[in-house]
């Protein structure tokens, strides 16, 4: 039988540090729990890459800076893929005479916004967080695009 003072001593001793392997196992399990969510998002990205082509996006721009900035933010949010692709499309849009406002907004929202990852973001962080974050990212993509273009124009 354990003596009461020994029990107290055991209670007060610091909890044992789990081994790295155990922690790694736990982290792998939490990642595995998210596998359906990540696979679904990757699946959606695949569909979007086929249905929404860069050519299609580029054809939407009209040449009006204000409208194009809004459109740049929206199309950047819809488009999916490596950021390098956004540079390629952005460079092409500039060559076609589309304003730097629109191109900057497009580049920014390509990375910070994403319609395909919205369901996963809601599932992980909740609806309220996702709504606030995406509204902020949308507004700031446009503000940053306008400020960048004005500053670049002033500097050059």
């Amino acid at each position: 039988m354990t003596k009461p003072h020994t029990q107290k001593k055991q209670q007060n001793s610091p909890p044992q540090q789990p081994s790295f392997l155990k922690v790694l196992q736990k982290s792998s399990l939490s990642f595995l729990a998210m596998a359906p969510l990540l696979l679904a998002t990757i699946g959606l990205v695949g569909i979007f890459q086929i249905l929404v082509t860069p050519k299609m996006l580029a054809s939407l721009f009209q040449g009006d800076p204000l409208f194009d900035t809004l459109l740049g933010t929206l199309t950047g949010a819809i488009a999916v893929g490596n950021p390098i692709v956004s540079y390629l499309i952005g460079g092409e849009l500039l060559n076609q005479g589309i304003s730097l406002y629109a191109v900057s907004a497009f580049l920014l929202s390509w990375i910070t916004l994403g319609f395909t990852q919205l369901p996963a973001e809601v599932e992980v962080f909740g609806g309220r967080f996702t709504l606030y974050r995406n509204i902020l990212a949308f507004i700031f993509a446009m503000i940053t695009a306008v400020l960048t273009t004005i500053t670049v124009q002033v500097l050059s």
Binding site: A33, P36, A40, G43, G46, I47, Q49, I50, L51, E123
Partner: peptide, 28 residues
């Protein structure tokens, strides 16, 4: 598991896409 229903929805979407445009679905 998290996102089970989303995965099912995406699989259904692929199924529909395959019926409408099998080549596109395979590329996706």
């Amino acid at each position: 598991f998290r996102g089970k229903y989303l995965l099912v929805a995406v699989l259904v979407l692929y199924g529909i896409f395959f019926l409408v445009n099998s080549g596109g679905a395979l590329s996706a």
